[in-house]
Every structure is written in C-alpha cells, then in structure tokens.
Design a binder for these strands. Structure first.
Lengths: 229, 229
DNA sequence: AAAGGGCATAATGTCGACATTATTTGTTTT
DNA sequence: AAAACAAATAATGTCGACATTATGCCCTTT
C-alpha cells in the first residue's frame, strides 16, 4: 500500500491532465498574454510533451473559456475585456451570495468550526503577506472556500471555483498592485471579521451584503455595480 | 462570398468539435448508459474518426462532467445518482431564479417582445407534442432561454446552459414518461402563462416562486425540496 | 511605387504505429 | 477443487509523420 505522495496526487495522471494544470496556471498568472497565439512548437518545448496531450489540455481549457480556437488557425489565449471582467465579478458575487445563503441555512457545527479554523490560519499569516504572497493567497482562498462549502452543493461549488479562476486572471493581470496597500488590507481584515460575525449570527441579508462588498471592491476601479440586493 | 450553410454552421469545424456534439447527444439521450465504458474501438467505428479527435472530444466532456476518466483505464460515461440529480435540479432552479431576477431588473421592450414571440411559437405547437416531441422540446427551451437571456450575463447564461444539459440527461433517463400525460401538460401550460404575467408585471418574488415550481415539478418523484425562498 | 497574384514556408489537424499497462485465460500447486 | 501465478490478449496513452491549409515573401504588372 503506497503511503506518500497524496499531496500532489497527480504523479500517475496522464500528461494531458498535468499539462492542463500547468498551462492554466501560465494563463492565469499572465505568462501567456491574453489574445496571444499558442504555438504548438513552443508549447511542446515548454512542457516537454507531444502534440496529442497538448491538444487534449487545450480542449479542456477551451470549455473553461481560457483559450479560444479559430477555424484552422490553432489556439489562442482567451482575450480579456472590461465588459467580461465586470460580468465575471458580478456573476461571482451572485454565486457566492447563493452559496453563503445556503451555507447559513444548512451549515452545522463543523461548518462553523471550519470557518474559524481557516480564519485563524489566515490571520496568523498576516505578517507574511509580502514575503509569501502565494501562501497567503492560498489561505485566503481556503477561508472563503470553508464558508461556501457549507452549501453542500457540488454543482454550485464547481461553478464557484470556475468563476474564481477566471476572476483571478483579471486580478493578476490588472489589479494586483493594490494588495501590498496596507489601507485596503486593513479594510479586508475588517470585512472578514464582520463576515464571520454575520455568519455565526445566521444573518443572511447582512452576509450577502458583506460578501458582495468584499468581492467587488477590487473591481471598483470602474463603477457599474448594480442590482445585488 | 459563401452564402449557404449558415444553419448548421459547423461544416468547417474540426472533427473533435463535431464528435463532441454527437457524443454529448448520445450520452444525454442515453444511447451510452451511465457508467458504461467507452471503448475507443467502438467510438472510432461509430463516429468514423481517429483516436486523436475522439480524445479531444472526451477531454471536453470531461470538463462538463459527462464522462469520467480512470487512471490508465480509459473513459466511462459519468454515473448518475439520485443525490446528484437533486443537486443539479436544485442548483438549476437557483440559477434560473437568479437569471430571471436580473432579467426583470434589466429587461427592456425587446426582452418582453422576445418572450411573447417564443411563447406564441410554443403554444402554436401544443397539438404536435406527441408527433414531434423533439421540436416541441426545442420551442420550450427557446421560450425559457428568451426569458433568461434578459439578464444579459454571458457567464450566468453559460452556467445555465450547462445545468440544463445535465438535467436533460436525468429527464431523458428517468422521467420522460410524464410528458405525454395531459394532466401535467395542462399544468405546465398554466405555469407558463402565470410566469409571463409575473414577468411583465416585474414581480420578482412571484416569478422566482413560479419558476422554481415549474423547474422542480419533474423531480418531485422524491421530495427534498428546501430553501428556495 | 503600389497593388495583386503566385510560390515557398510554416503551422495545424488527423491518422497509424509503438510502448506501456490492464485484463483475461490457462496452468500449476497446495 | 480452489487459489495463486504466469502468459497471452486487448486497450490505453503517446509520439512521429503525412496531408491540408494558412501565412508570408517575392515577383510581376499597371
């Protein structure tokens, strides 16, 4: 019975799966720029695999709308637009409101405990944001995932994950210069604390309002926030 | 300048795209049963293509969770379960409520006109349900899509489409014997009319209640409908 | 000199073949 | 006779190569 390597859990998967994860990351962090043509020769060299796994990985990212395909002209990185960013952020806020509402209705003691545990791990890491931004990003994500997971709906959680990934692309490309700002960081910490309070009090309207403000604040570079009760 | 074949619009796409559509249909209608192993040799023979386009198509359906892949053991049709059916139907109802709420807030005259037009085309086809069930299904779908499209959110509409497809699988597999029932059909027609009235009156709470009842009625074979305000 | 057409280059899309891995069948041993 | 091991069969995953199609360059023509 093999004991180790349960962390990565992909040492036995096929090439397409591994390449898909790497390629997705490269697109999300902006190594491949929006609209950029994805040459097969370049991808082959970068990921050290043949054409077949590459095309399978690209086919998967096609469904996730991270790449686009033109008739007989190969693959390109999905272009970005202010319009799409607003739509994604708005939709993400609505889905997150949905998950949180359901979580408040369905969440049990374990759900509450998970929120407090992940919040603690996030807050203990507050001082290391600038030194390890990637790890802090993970703990922040884990905190919000702990909240949303209380909805107990795999379908909604998968939609939520997909929207998170697309939004993170815009965050990395356009608005990742506001994280080291201590002003907005203090605001974020306060938002987290208020959210936890609202959750434990099972105050659905307040929690919905708080999560919407929290998620949409980075995208308020340009206005246009309407209709989220 | 080529004039024709804009109807299918896929006569020039690559094989993987065409095979994906056909294979998706075959899974949704139940030609390939849930959990069934998808032999490459059989797929090659059925769709008359090589392995490469097949694997690309399967990779796409993997993301849409219509097939699953086991380590080095090939592809299988995604299994079904009562639990997943409830989750999909519940999530679909919530997403549809979201789209309709936004549509009522954002919809203009053209939105209203589109609803009435598609409703008319659906009702004129009421007598032909048993003779052309497929065409009636399309008009029914067009009617609801006309309503939801008023939300003007490509992201939400895509989520909605994905959930519709998954739900249609369960409808085809488990509960497609209640359509010719005249009793439930009359109820459906009444539900449509009430929904249109609520939409034109911009009554969001009523519209949300009506659409939830309409979408969840087929899945009420077993209870468990909670929390849709 | 600019525009259009034709040729050369390059990239994509697809297939067949090979190596690896799982499954089944048959044999042997207890 | 049942279980376990081994060989044979079959299916998957990957790569290289070929045909098709797009792109860029150069030459010709007005």
């Amino acid at each position: 019975m093999p004991a180790t390597d349960e962390i990565t859990s992909d040492s036995k998967d096929n090439f397409a799966s591994k390449v898909m994860i790497q390629l997705k990351q490269d697109i999300l962090i902006g190594f491949f720029k929006p609209g950029e043509k994805l040459l097969m020769s370049r991808l082959k060299e970068r990921y050290q695999v043949g054409i077949s796994p590459l095309r399978e990985a690209l086919s998967q990212l096609l469904v996730e709308q991270l790449v686009v395909v033109e008739n007989q002209r190969g693959f390109k990185v999905h272009p970005i637009s202010l319009q799409e960013m607003h739509d994604i952020y708005q939709s993400r806020a609505l889905i997150e409101q949905l998950c949180i509402s359901l979580a408040i209705e369905r969440g049990d003691d374990e759900w509450e405990a998970g929120i407090l545990a992940s919040a603690h791990k996030m807050q203990k890491f507050s001082d290391c944001i600038e030194s390890h931004p990637h790890e802090w990003e993970k703990r922040h994500q884990d905190f919000h995932t702990a909240i949303a997971s209380g909805c107990q709906s795999p379908t909604l959680l998968q939609v939520r994950r997909s929207l998170y990934e697309k939004a993170s692309r815009y965050r990395n490309l356009w608005l990742n210069k506001n994280m080291p700002d201590p002003k907005v960081f203090a605001t974020n910490q306060r938002q987290h604390q208020d959210l936890i309070t609202a959750l434990l009090q099972r105050d659905i309207p307040l929690a919905k309002q708080l999560i919407a403000e929290h998620l949409l604040s980075p995208s308020l570079l340009l206005g246009k926030n309407d209709s989220l009760q």
